[in-house]
């Protein structure tokens, strides 16, 4: 048994139906697996949804999980992106309540890291940061002392480089 637990990314194409997410979530929870992050939206074909899930597990568990997901009738395709060359992004929206001193430092960081200002009001900002997981972690660390009030972070979206 391979004890090495790592973060795995799986991409799942499913029929776009009300109970499908519950089936996927049940497949994880029923076996005691945790979903670390999830993101879902329709594909070019609106009857089909793509779900990207990241989960912590070893190889063996992941193989079982992929088989179990494949057993669901509404699952059309499961792709394990873990070992593959793929683009991965997360996004976070950060609300800041800033004073004048912080304002200047926020704007400087925005410029330096190429973040986006979504709103700029007298009481503070809403920023958008897109990047890989480390980029997001770093942004949050930087913004924490700059009046960070709240944030919403998306799950990972991922796309294999080769095809897609």
């Amino acid at each position: 048994m391979d004890p090495e637990v790592r973060e795995n990314t799986i991409s799942i194409l499913v029929n776009n139906k009300p109970d499908v997410l519950a089936r996927i979530a049940g497949t994880f929870s029923g076996r005691g697996f945790n979903i670390e992050s999830i993101s879902a939206n329709v594909t070019r074909n609106p009857a089909v949804t793509k779900i990207i899930i990241t989960t912590l597990s070893n190889r063996e568990t992941l193989t079982k999980l992929v088989k179990l997901l494949n057993r669901l009738l509404d699952v059309l395709e499961v792709e394990d992106l873990t070992g593959m060359e793929s683009a991965r992004r997360e996004m976070v929206l950060v609300r800041l309540k800033t004073n004048e001193h912080q304002n200047a430092r926020v704007l400087k960081a925005v410029e330096r890291y190429g973040w986006k200002v979504i709103s700029n009001e007298p009481e503070g900002f809403v920023l958008e940061v897109t990047g890989d997981r480390e980029d997001i972690d770093r942004a949050l660390t930087i913004l924490e002392p700059l009046g960070m009030d709240d944030f919403t972070r998306t799950g990972t979206v991922a796309l294999a480089n080769g095809h897609g």
Binding site: T63, K64, K67, L68, N70, R71
Partner: peptide, 8 residues
Amino acid sequence: IDPTSIEK
């Protein structure tokens, strides 16, 4: 018949 049974 069920691939999930194999190696389970």
